[in-house]
Amino acid sequence: MAYDYEKYIRPGKLPHIWCPGCGHGIVMKGLIRAIDSCGLDKNNTALVSGIGCASRLPGYLDFCTLHTAHGRAAAFATGVKMAKPEMNVIVMGGDGDGTAIGGNHFIHACRRNIDMTYVIMNNLIYGMTGGQFSPCTPTGDKASTTPYGNPDPTFDISKLAIGAGATFVARTTAFHATQIDKLIAEGIKHKGMAIIEVLDDCPTTYGRRNKFRSVIDMMKRLKDIAVPVAAAGKMTAEQLEGKVLTGVLYKEDKPEYCEQYAKVIAKASGAK
């Protein structure tokens, strides 16, 4: 079915900066479908991002858009949401931006369980600066700053989010395009901090250094490593080796931050 993406795209702002084969565009379309299915009011929706290829996404879309500094998206978004809780706040960004330089803001936004949706596009690399290793680059892989192979262990973003206190955590991949909008929509509807990790691809700065001969190879990887949570229960540890779970990984109802602060206001204004 043809879909009216134009309704949400800012006139004159395309083409985007992303390379051919990059998955960020797939995620952007998923986001648009999710926002549309939730019926969010454009005037009352803020899209916040940090720095990097993924963080250019909000600029293309017709909302209140805030392209902040490297790693700081979650903290800016917290200010927006706290000051105006009636706004829908969605953060878009990459793995380096969100979990390295922005790691502290990321975990504390999760801990507060503030009502926002954070879509983190994990392409395993710093793309914009030319392919330096990120906290998510697999150990042993090549990046422009790991010419001998990456010695660092990696973050599992979804586990990090769950551990930090996010109350909705889901994962999918850029290959599973139709799942992206369903999970983002679920995240938007969830009251509290929703993290949606989308495993993404960067053919230009990651793929070509790590023996992916084409974008198709990279997409095939995303297809192959994904195991739906429901299916994983029936698989052996051996079968799950090298796989990542997709779908809703964690969901919990817990007091949301702005609602908690509303109680502080009630208490303070009554206790004059």
Binding site: R72, A75, G79, M82, M87, N104
Partner: peptide
């Protein structure tokens, strides 16, 4: 609204975000 942020940078970010809402 009062919020104690996770660090100084976050605090500065939060007031910019808040200011943009008026």
């Amino acid at each position: 609204k009062f919020i104690q942020m996770e660090d100084e940078i976050g605090a500065m970010a939060s007031i910019i975000g808040a200011s943009l809402t008026g």
